[in-house]
Amino acid sequence: MARKVSTQRKVAFTGIAWTIGFLMFFPILWTFLTSFKSEGDAIASPPVFLVFNWTLENYHEVQSRSDYFGHFWNSVVISFGSTLLGLLIAIPAAWAMAFSPTKRTKDVLMWMLSTKMMPPVGALIPIYLIFRDGGLLDSRIGLVVVLTLINLPIIVWMLYTYFKEIPGEILEAARMDGASLMKEVIYVLTPMAVPGIASTLLLNIILAWNEAFWTLNLTTSNAAPLTTFIASYSSPEGLFYAKLSAASTMAIAPILILGWFSQKQLVRGLTFGAVK
């Protein structure tokens, strides 16, 4: 039921909403702008907004001084690696729970969720010691394993809610139409499950990319992803705003873009299907 809205009202709301949207986004915008400034312009007072000497030097410097792309690559490996590994483990589980549910399925799901609620400090010390003794500290493989485990409940849950939406009648229709098991999987099930799997993948890459407890505590240099690398700018000698901004912009840009694509799935994934 679309209702007539007075243009005046609409313009007023547009003004307020855009102002608030701009304010919320401003720190990101400011970081982006600062990344193209010289260090002098970056701390100029009064601050300069658009009129300054735009330069790409910071991006260049960040890379040449500190192997930025090495850390970027670590982030990619860790977030994709843990997500793919998680999917591999979770898809059969979610599949079984969605399509041959038993009385206990719900309890298993709830229990899985409850493991996600354990605060990381409860596990920090043993994991740290195990990693130290096993030579896994500052290794990508170690982080992949930990991030897989912490996100596994979310992956199972998201997949479960998506798989549950595939109607049973469609599978039956395929069988009436004479599809063999393999053909049913190839032509009907896979195409219908792929969107859900893709959304799950997307959200979990975002979560893993931004994970900043285990990455900070378990890596120092070699395997350090961007979270740890950026944190090294917190020391006073790292107070170069323009370079910090350049490093930050590169760290957040890919995930920001992914994130905008996955808004809807985000709500579902993070509320475990409680809000759709």
Binding site: I20, G21, F22, M24, F25, P27, I28, W30, T31, I206, W209, N210, A212, L216, L226, T227, T228, I230, A231, Y233, S234, L244, S245, S248, A251, I252, I255, L256, L258, G259, W260, Q263
Partner: peptide, 18 residues
């Protein structure tokens, strides 16, 4: 909507340092 949602996708260390 996109502008408002953006901060959620920012890496915690980046947000804090900025």
């Amino acid at each position: 909507r996109i502008l408002v949602i953006a901060p959620f996708f920012i890496m915690p260390t980046v947000a804090a340092l900025v």
